[in-house]
Simulated assay, not measured.
Amino acid sequence: MTRTAGHLLDTLTAKLAPDPDDNPLLPLIAAGTADRATLAVLALEQHLVIASDQRSFARLAQRAATEAPASAAFFRLLADGEAVAAGHLTVFARACGVDEERAAAHEPLPGCQAYPSYVARLALEAAPADAVLALTANFASWGGYCATIARALRHHYDFTDEACAFFDFFAEPSPDLDKSARTAVEEGGEAGRLDERLAQRHGRLLQSYESMFWSTLARL
């Protein structure tokens, strides 16, 4: 079943791989033509995303604790990672000129907050293994985006390593998280609690909402 779990993850990741046009902001940042004001809004919106996702992952871990312990372990890893990322994000926000007053006054952009809203929905009603499969497939594109942004921030915007640490964190492969995801999918499949059709639907919507996040920022 381990091989089957890996096959499911790899297949769905490939199926949901985004088109280049799905992130219109990325080439602007990569070329250094996105202005710093847009980077500041990126930081502000990500702050809200991270806080929401951390709560959602904690809720998923709580729901899965009894019947799907491997999925619960996966979601705990995610929640712990969001806590680390939040600290790095604060440094990135400061480098973009965002202070506490501006952060408190920021009004969220609906197009940027659709993604965490859907993750919160998954936390309420998705089968744990389905959520593991969908989220893992989505993370592949997010990690690639972060690697590109981290390089561009150093090359075009003269950001320090500390200011880029948020994007470095997500760009780095995580063997532990990958292993945990495969174990959780295997567990769900063996218990008959994995619905590939629903997992693909969740993943497709997550990918669409992530595209909406970047498109919203690109229009600023």
Rank of each mutant, 00 (worst) to 15 (best):
132 V>R: 00
153 L>S: 04
64 A>W: 06
87 G>Q: 14
70 A>C: 10
98 V>P: 06
212 M>H: 15
219 R>M: 10
136 T>K: 09
177 L>F: 09
72 A>G: 00
110 P>K: 02
202 H>G: 02
156 H>S: 06
135 L>E: 03
217 L>W: 01
69 P>F: 06
181 A>Y: 02
169 F>R: 08
81 G>P: 11
93 A>Y: 01
24 P>D: 15
187 E>R: 02
216 T>K: 02
96 C>D: 00
126 A>K: 00
126 A>Y: 00
107 E>H: 06
102 R>Y: 04
18 P>I: 11
24 P>C: 14
11 T>G: 05
144 G>V: 10
171 A>I: 04
37 A>K: 11
220 L>P: 00
43 A>P: 00
125 E>C: 10
21 D>H: 15
144 G>R: 10
31 A>M: 10
189 G>V: 10
111 G>T: 06
134 A>Y: 03
128 P>Y: 08
114 A>R: 13
215 S>C: 05
141 S>E: 09
209 Y>Q: 13
153 L>W: 06
198 L>Y: 12
170 F>E: 13
8 L>D: 15
125 E>W: 05
38 T>F: 09
137 A>M: 08
37 A>R: 07
72 A>F: 08
210 E>F: 10
92 F>K: 01
3 R>L: 03
92 F>W: 01
82 E>C: 07
17 A>F: 10
184 A>K: 06
150 A>F: 07
49 V>L: 07
206 L>R: 00
17 A>H: 13
11 T>C: 02
96 C>I: 00
5 A>Q: 03
193 R>G: 05
216 T>S: 12
96 C>G: 05
215 S>T: 14
151 R>Y: 13
119 V>I: 07
216 T>A: 07
33 T>Y: 05
39 L>I: 07
77 L>F: 09
164 C>V: 12
199 A>S: 13
164 C>N: 08
167 F>L: 11
21 D>S: 15
185 V>L: 03
14 A>E: 15
162 E>L: 14
22 D>V: 01
140 A>Q: 11
216 T>R: 12
124 L>V: 12
69 P>W: 03
76 R>D: 06
139 F>Q: 13
183 T>G: 05
64 A>V: 09
86 A>C: 03
136 T>E: 14
121 R>M: 14
6 G>L: 11
10 D>S: 11
179 K>S: 13
207 Q>E: 02
144 G>T: 03
81 G>Q: 08
150 A>V: 05
